[in-house]
Amino acid sequence: MHETGRDGLPSFGRRTSLREQVAEALRAAVVSGEMKPGQVYSAPALAARFEVSATPVREAMLDLAKQGLIEVVPNKGFHVTAVSDGELDQITEIRLLLEPPAAARAAERATAEQVRALFPLAQAIVDAAADADLIRYIEADTEFHRRLLELGGNLRLVAVVTELRARTRLYGLAGLAERGLLEASAKEHVTMCDHVAAGRGVELSELMHVHIGHVRREWAGPKERTQ
């Protein structure tokens, strides 16, 4: 798991290469909102922050650019990709079409062992919310939803949804944590596990609709960004 440094950027977790370590740290900072659209971040400055050479930082930046999380600014660095209200609406609509039925299939197909593996992840999300640890929350949330959808058996769908979730990011998490509302959303993951364990596909699909709706309502807030 990541720890957050003095400047708000997460420190490295355990990854297989330095490039992946940097990419994951930057991804977590972008997704959590620690790194914001409109500000240019340079590879040398980030390399100094991470105490590595600029090469793995530039490589990591290219990885994130391919995912649509950042945009490269020639000769300067990069800035976080801004997502407009229109784009967020469209992505949310696609997720609503894909995730609820996929979750329902997961509830129908999951084995007892697979269900048991989901519960610790759900609890990790709840614990992170209680601690207002947004980096840890996002890591556990991402892993939970990936594993849940994988139980449905359509790995291409999982890849598409994972990319969509990364592009929307969890806007407004910091505000929810400050207002004490993040835990309620986090606890929905435990209920999801209960539905999977009981094979309640319909109920899980309905809960997924509500859960995804948070992205556009409570998390995103009023429609103030540029269309």
Results as ranks from 00 to 15, higher is better:
Q21P: 06
L26P: 02
G13P: 12
D85E: 15
A54K: 13
V30I: 12
P74F: 05
A23Q: 04
K66G: 11
E51I: 03
L46I: 02
P74L: 12
V72I: 15
S42H: 04
T81A: 15
S42D: 11
F12G: 05
P10M: 15
A28V: 14
A29N: 09
E59G: 10
M61C: 11
H79E: 15
S84R: 07
P37T: 00
S17P: 04
V22N: 01
S53W: 03
A82K: 11
A65C: 06
A28D: 09
E51Q: 14
L62Q: 09
E24D: 15
L69Q: 09
E71H: 00
V73G: 05
Q39V: 02
M35C: 01
A43Y: 05
V73T: 09
K66I: 08
D63Y: 08
K66Y: 07
D89Y: 13
E87G: 05
N75A: 15
L9N: 03
R58P: 01
Q21C: 14
V31M: 14
D85L: 13
Y41C: 04
V80N: 01
K76A: 13
G38T: 00
G33C: 09
A54F: 03
T16G: 11
E87I: 05
Q90I: 10
Y41T: 04
L26N: 04
A60S: 14
V72T: 12
R58T: 11
G13I: 08
R14C: 11
G13D: 13
A82I: 05
V40D: 01
V52H: 06
F78M: 11
R49F: 09
G77C: 14
R14E: 12
A48K: 12
V31N: 08
P10F: 05
A23S: 14
S53E: 10
E20M: 06
E20G: 13
A47M: 03
A82T: 11
V31T: 12
L62Y: 06
N75S: 15
G38Y: 00
P56D: 08
T16P: 01
L69D: 09
T16L: 13
D89R: 15
S11Q: 13
K76Y: 11
A43Q: 05
A65W: 02
G77R: 02
S32M: 08
G68I: 08
A54N: 04
A25V: 10
V52M: 08
K76D: 13
P56V: 05
N75G: 10
V72A: 10
P44D: 02
D63W: 09
Q67R: 06
L69E: 03
N75F: 10
L18N: 04
L26A: 12
V72N: 05
A54R: 11
R27E: 12
A65K: 00
A65S: 07
A29V: 04
Q67V: 02
E71Y: 00
S42M: 06
F78H: 11
P37Y: 00
V72W: 01
T55C: 06
L64V: 02
A28I: 12
M61H: 03
T55W: 08
E24W: 10
S84E: 08
S17D: 03
A60I: 08
A65E: 05
I70D: 03
A29G: 06
